[in-house]
Amino acid sequence: SVRPGKPGPAAPPRGPVAAPPAQRTNSPQPAGEPGTAAGAQLQLIPAPADGAVDAADEAVDLLLDSGRAPGEILVLTTGETHPWAVHERSFGEASYWAQHDAADDVFYADATAERATGRPVVVVAVNGGSDEVTGRALPAAMARAGTLLIVCGDPQRINAVLGAPA
């Protein structure tokens, strides 16, 4: 039995796992259409704002269980910072960003962190934040995602922020 808000099985990787960074684009793309940006597929996991981080964590677990390498996954939050990022930042910004640059583990950042570069899979937890932050974060996340963008949050709010018909 599947719990409400729990994501379905993660899609298996298609073709080459690592997309070359040169394929990244900085132009915002509509997030409602798979195949935009560098060919990233969009997956929406419905979750309330206060459950978006848990849904994102479950999605990461499924990705890892399906064979994704931890260094291929970037997790972004639009509201409160993910607890992992809060913990790692307590050791200093230099140490925190060195982990990002090493790219050997899942990395957690605020959606507004421009320094966070693209990875094959980007997971966004829409866990609060203003509509303006969310409206900028989602197209930026699509541009960062090489093969898969997973958005965890309230579908009505996400569509409203992106200007998609409800």
Score class of each variant (00 low, 15 high):
residue 70 P to I: 09
residue 162 L to I: 10
residue 73 I to V: 11
residue 147 T to D: 07
residue 8 G to S: 11
residue 33 E to M: 14
residue 30 P to M: 03
residue 139 P to C: 11
residue 18 A to I: 14
residue 103 A to Q: 12
residue 114 E to I: 05
residue 141 A to S: 13
residue 156 Q to M: 11
residue 139 P to G: 07
residue 131 D to Q: 09
residue 18 A to V: 14
residue 126 V to K: 08
residue 88 E to F: 01
residue 24 R to M: 09
residue 147 T to G: 09
residue 7 P to F: 06
residue 52 A to D: 00
residue 2 V to S: 13
residue 79 G to S: 05
residue 103 A to Y: 04
residue 36 T to G: 15
residue 56 A to P: 02
residue 98 A to N: 09
residue 124 V to F: 03
residue 83 P to E: 10
residue 131 D to T: 08
residue 157 R to F: 08
residue 150 I to A: 00
residue 144 R to D: 05
residue 92 G to V: 00
residue 52 A to R: 02
residue 121 V to C: 00
residue 39 G to N: 11
residue 99 Q to N: 03
residue 31 A to F: 14
residue 119 R to S: 04
residue 123 V to F: 07
residue 88 E to K: 09
residue 103 A to N: 06
residue 12 P to T: 09
residue 70 P to F: 00
residue 61 D to I: 07
residue 31 A to K: 00
residue 21 P to T: 02
residue 28 P to M: 12
residue 116 A to W: 02
residue 23 Q to K: 00
residue 109 A to F: 04
residue 3 R to K: 14
residue 104 D to A: 03
residue 67 G to S: 03
residue 71 G to P: 01
residue 27 S to M: 13
residue 149 L to Y: 08
residue 33 E to S: 15
residue 60 V to C: 01
residue 25 T to N: 10
residue 144 R to M: 06
residue 56 A to K: 02
residue 137 A to I: 09
residue 68 R to A: 13
residue 20 P to H: 03
residue 70 P to G: 10
residue 140 A to I: 09
residue 90 S to G: 14
residue 29 Q to Y: 14
residue 112 T to L: 01
residue 54 D to R: 14
residue 18 A to H: 12
residue 52 A to Q: 03
residue 118 G to R: 06
residue 12 P to N: 03
residue 126 V to Y: 10
residue 63 L to I: 01
residue 162 L to C: 14
residue 31 A to P: 10
residue 17 V to S: 07
residue 139 P to Y: 07
residue 42 L to V: 15
residue 61 D to H: 14
residue 131 D to V: 03
residue 13 P to Y: 06
residue 53 V to F: 02
residue 13 P to S: 07
residue 146 G to M: 00
residue 105 D to L: 00
residue 45 I to N: 11
residue 33 E to W: 13
residue 101 D to Q: 14
residue 8 G to K: 12
residue 117 T to L: 13
residue 117 T to Y: 05
